[in-house]
Write a protein that binds this DNA or RNA. Structure first.
Lengths: 123, 123
DNA sequence: GTTAGTGCAAACCTTTTGCAGCTAT
DNA sequence: ATAGCTGCAAAAGGTTTGCACTAAC
């Protein structure tokens, strides 16, 4: 049911959001159970866990058809999704030079988004 | 003194590590003061704050001569540093395609390190 | 009857905040 | 006295854990 809830919510809901929604289906559901299941599903490779830098983890069903990474603006906190293939070249480079196998989904890249840049605050 | 402590520690100490070390110099120093100063120094652009995905923030003096990013292994938690210029091409691409100005230092990239990959666990 | 998963509540950890006091302007 | 920074203690927020209980094999 937890997995269905994550899928149903779409996007990248936080543990608390999953909890709220799942509890609507299973009365009496406890937050600890949600965390335990989220963790188990993550270990099982069925969901991704995401660190958006906000202090709370996000979750999403693993979906090969919609691999993407996140551009997080350090000023406004806005999140933009970019297709995973944008990092293909970088991934190849890192694999070659450091033997490091870059994750293929839900990496978080921090920077300044277009609108915050155009507001003209010096970097 | 906080700034000196971060510089003296080197690497990417956590707030708690800075606190411990700084307290050795200033008896009675409080954790709240460390957080307040770390925040102020970060706002002033003198130090970078880093999200290593461990739930506690890291800090480092901003040093144009040693710009780098972090490769964090999702299995062993090990951190490898890579020169910032590795991401130059990606940064240019993102700027062009999304108007997104990628941070130049201390980004965190998650994946699997060489030794964990060679231990042969399927990914 | 042993294992796995649950609710509940309390603990945990990092970080933030309210407040009173000190220092220098 | 006023503004700014401090210590202290307590709160906040997200997450984890101990324990007793239930359901399943």
């Amino acid at each position: 049911v937890i997995l269905e809830t994550v899928a149903h919510l779409g996007g990248h809901p936080t543990a608390h959001e999953v909890f709220q929604e799942a509890r609507a289906r299973l009365r009496g559901l406890n937050q600890a159970t949600v965390y335990r299941n989220l963790d188990a599903l993550h270990d099982a490779g069925l969901i991704d866990s995401i660190d958006p830098g906000t202090g709370q983890a996000g979750f999403a069903v693993r979906d090969a058809a919609h691999l993407h990474h996140h551009l997080v603006c350090s000023e406004c906190g806005g999140v933009t999704e970019v297709p995973a293939k944008v990092l293909d070249r970088l991934a190849a480079t890192l694999l070659q030079s450091h033997g490091f196998d870059l994750g293929t989904d839900h990496l978080t890249l921090v920077g300044r988004c277009r609108s915050c840049r155009s507001k003209g605050v010096p970097g």
